[in-house]
């Protein structure tokens, strides 16, 4: 059985450097297309909305989403970095859809460390950005002089471990679910493959996928909030 990522196409840039178009890339494009389509539909429809009257239908739903996301953001992070809320909403929607796409039979893009590590690394960059923008002196002091300057290497290793632990948590969960389900489809006889996988799909794709998306975003929000607040 082969669980490796299918490479559809490789473009040679220079000697030894290849730009690979893999299964992950294609599935990411599919998810991006879905999200872009939804966003464009909402944007086109929102030109007719009147924000002084009572909202109805789709407008009601979108306003509820935005409002509850802001509440969630403030509960887990701080009001100082509220301008980052749209980025984390996009991250959350992307992770939610890409973890759940295993239901359709496609390989989830998050079952590839090359997908989850850049997402975690963006969180790492945002932590440094929030710390340097909102309280630069205290943030640098917290890393280099806290509790003594001798512990600076330990603090730096602790900071560097954050994106790795974030990305491995998401990657391992989604990859584990994917491998378990493909083992079931590969080994089990044909009459077992009809009804029995449904609860497993429900747990490994829907429940665990949503839970891991929430955990990834909540942890990122907490780190950014801690870095920006005094």
């Amino acid at each position: 059985m082969d669980f490796s990522i299918v490479v559809h196409h490789g473009i040679q840039i220079t000697d030894g450097i290849m730009f690979l178009i893999t299964e992950t890339t294609v599935n990411t494009w599919i998810i991006m297309g879905l999200l872009f389509l939804f966003g464009i539909v909402v944007r086109v429809k929102s030109r007719k909305w009147d924000f002084t009257k009572k909202p109805t239908g789709l407008q009601n739903f979108i306003e509820m989403c935005v409002e509850s996301w802001e509440k969630f953001f403030i509960a887990n992070s701080s009001t100082r970095v509220l301008y980052l809320a749209p980025w984390f909403f996009v991250l959350f929607m992307f992770l939610l859809v890409s973890n759940m796409i295993g239901v359709t039979g496609l390989r989830p893009p998050t079952a590839d460390w090359g997908m989850t590590f850049p997402l975690a690394f963006s969180t790492f960059c945002l932590i440094i950005f929030a710390g340097m923008r909102h309280r630069p002196k205290k943030y640098l002091k917290g890393i280099f002089l806290e509790p003594l300057f001798v512990f600076a290497p330990l603090n730096i290793i602790g900071e560097l471990a954050r994106p790795i632990s974030l990305s491995f948590r998401l990657f391992g969960n989604i990859l584990g679910g994917m491998i378990l389900l493909s083992l079931l489809y590969g080994i089990a006889p044909i009459f077992v493959q009809f009804v029995l996988p449904a609860p497993l799909h429900m747990y490994f794709d829907l429940a665990a996928g949503a839970l891991q998306a929430v955990i990834f975003v909540v942890l990122s929000l907490t780190f950014v909030g801690i870095a920006s607040e005094d």
Partner: peptide
């Protein structure tokens, strides 16, 4: 649920190492 997710992390690391060793 969030705490369960955190507690799962160590187990997931072991699972990843097992996958690496086998595949």
């Amino acid at each position: 649920f969030i705490g369960c997710g955190f507690a799962e992390t160590g187990g997931v690391y072991g699972l990843l190492i097992a996958f690496l060793l086998i595949f």
